[in-house]
């Protein structure tokens, strides 16, 4: 069933027996580690039949959780996208002091435990936090309400759009934009008609990944949401609640929606990668902020 890549002499590891054995072992592990979790979600969700599945999805608390998750994404993703574009424009089109440091700061949320993020937000907006007492007396609710959920989601996904755009825009340079401006185009016109067409696939790629993470975020949101059933429970939190209530089929029914979202995200990812999205990050810069900054400084100095 397997063959070495055509048209080249045999290379290391091309011995048929070794090749077949390695492919066999790897595919078995892929089936166990990656495919089985996906299959069991569908299996458990529909184990009680289609009717129970439909009832579980149509339960008011589940519908509310879906709604809250969608609203959170509708707020967090556009703001995050605007930030990602602004950050990429500032960092790749201009030289300024502290640029490299800014890149590192933008990437920080990527390496921090979501629980730490949640705890940190508590110390800003919670009653024991910096602004908690002031917010309380002004009767503004941030924690255990939608604003807190949105803020925590924005923290965990802050780098998602920026880190797709920065390596790409770095590689594209500034010549086109400079030509457009020198021909009299305004800044916005330059952005929408010169820059945006060049970065649209990478932008969409970042938005898709950002959306998937916002809708699936668990740790950070579970700290700041307060888990109020039917009020501040997003879909991932609702899954936990049902699961610990021993409502297994309900939990898996809710989980199947997020699993479907993950599959759709993967399909979108593959389609966007055909347009070259994701490559600028994967190839030269290996997603390293320091490395990206180094390439940038090398470009500037040459």
């Amino acid at each position: 069933m397997s063959a070495p890549v055509k048209g080249r002499p045999p290379r290391v590891g091309d011995a048929p027996a070794f090749r077949r054995a390695l492919i066999g072992v790897v595919l078995t592990l892929v089936a166990i580690v990656i495919i089985a979790p996906l299959v069991i979600i569908g299996y458990q969700a529909f184990s009680q039949g289609l009717k129970v599945y439909a009832e579980a999805i149509a339960h008011p608390d589940t519908l509310h959780a879906i709604g809250l998750t969608v609203i959170t994404a509708l707020i967090a993703v556009p703001i995050n996208t605007a930030f990602g574009v602004a950050a990429a424009w500032a960092i790749t089109k201009f030289d300024f002091w502290g640029r490299r440091f800014l890149l590192v700061v933008i990437e920080i949320p990527f390496s921090i435990s979501p629980i730490v993020a949640g705890v940190a937000y508590l110390f800003v907006y919670g009653l024991q936090g910096l602004f908690g007492p002031a917010l309380e007396s002004a009767d503004i609710k941030i924690l255990f309400a939608l604003p807190g959920i949105v803020l925590a989601s924005m923290f965990v996904t802050a780098p998602f759009v920026a880190r797709e755009l920065i390596p790409l825009m770095q590689a594209q340079g500034r010549d086109l934009e400079e030509a457009a401006t020198s021909l009299g185009a305004s800044g916005w016109r330059t952005f929408f008609f010169v820059t945006l067409p060049n970065i649209r696939w990478a932008l969409l790629y970042g938005v898709v990944l950002c959306n998937a993470r916002v809708m699936g975020e668990f740790g950070a949101v579970s700290v700041v949401s307060g888990n109020i059933r039917g009020q501040t429970n997003t879909l991932p939190l609702h899954i936990e609640l049902l699961y610990h209530d021993y409502q297994t089929s309900g939990a898996f029914a809710a989980a199947s929606i997020l699993a479907l979202l993950a599959v759709v995200t993967l399909v979108a990812k593959v389609l966007l990668e055909r347009h070259g999205a994701g490559r600028a990050r994967r190839r030269p810069a290996l997603a390293a902020p320091v490395a990206a900054a180094k390439t940038a400084s090398a470009e500037v100095s040459s």
Partner: peptide
């Protein structure tokens, strides 16, 4: 394409699937 599933699948969903 499936290799990226662990990044795309929400952690809570992965958690209950692996536990089961």
């Amino acid at each position: 394409a499936l290799v990226d599933l662990p990044f795309a699948l929400p952690t809570a969903v992965a958690g209950i699937a692996l536990t089961t």
